[in-house]
Design a protein around this nucleic acid. Structure first.
Lengths: 137, 137
DNA sequence: TTTAGTGACTTGCATTTTGCAAGTTTGTCC
DNA sequence: GGACAAACTTGCAAAATGCAAGTCACTAAA
């Protein structure tokens, strides 16, 4: 009698992806994790300055969605390292699509590559050559 | 000296894309327009049943973002047809990335193709092959 | 001439989410 | 002991969401 897992809105893959990722912050956290950031503090220092309560909430939601895992990298005091699961890393393709669209259709936007410390490095925007897969991180 | 802040959060293409599209509904409206729906009533009949006030709000926001245009298809009473601009159609790549990710990582989700009347038809795989397509995994 | 119906919104209002600031906990180093 | 730091928590106002109902302009039927 096991009823199949009911979908919140519909079985559409897009709708269900948006139920997990459809807000202004989740994909930015994934972006930063892809860029090599791993601690709460590093994530909080992104150029968009995510509010810390939102960050805590998103990290928990992304964990229960199987996109992020948390492991302690030290004890006393316990400090956690956040990393992407394979499911989370696969979102690189989605981010790449957003980067391409944004750079092509929102004037002035760029690919942002950040070191773990939060420094920004602009990656050329005028470079609309698409030949080989470009990396997000 | 120009001190105007051009971007709401950062110059990142992802962040600015999410400022326009980062919610649970906008990309579903785009999806339906790509599927050939065009009137307010057709859009309101999507399987996710978008609330009508949200639909009106999103259509206006997508218009001011240059993603959607509205043209009257009849007078007395005036009725509007909503269509995607080239900027909006280019979001097909983003939707495709979401579909691939969702189908691969959210069990049970499918590609939904809807006729203008709202009937659902499951579709197997992505068929876009314009340029070298990236691998999903 | 009412009456009913339809498409395209609008409005009211309760619930939920966001965002800012400040506070807390658990530790280290001096 | 006191300063400092990372990683959260909490409080609360503002904004967004979602449900139901209402409006407006017109058509068509009774």
């Amino acid at each position: 009698m096991n009823t199949a897992k009911p979908f919140a809105r519909s079985p559409c893959a897009i709708a269900n992806s948006l139920d997990i990722l459809g807000d202004k912050w989740s994909l930015l956290v994934v972006r930063d994790l892809l860029h090599g950031k791993s601690t709460y503090g590093e994530l909080a220092l992104s150029p968009e300055r995510i509010p810390t309560n939102i960050l805590a909430d998103r990290l928990e939601r992304l964990q229960s969605a199987g996109i992020v895992t948390r492991t302690p990298y030290q004890q006393r005091p316990v400090r956690y390292s956040y990393t992407l699961t394979p499911k989370g890393s696969a979102l690189g393709e989605v981010l790449l699509a957003f980067v391409r669209w944004g750079k092509q259709h929102i004037p002035g936007t760029i690919t942002l590559k950040q070191g773990p410390a939060g420094g920004e490095v602009a990656v050329s925007a005028a470079n609309s050559r698409r030949r080989r897969t470009k990396r997000v991180g």
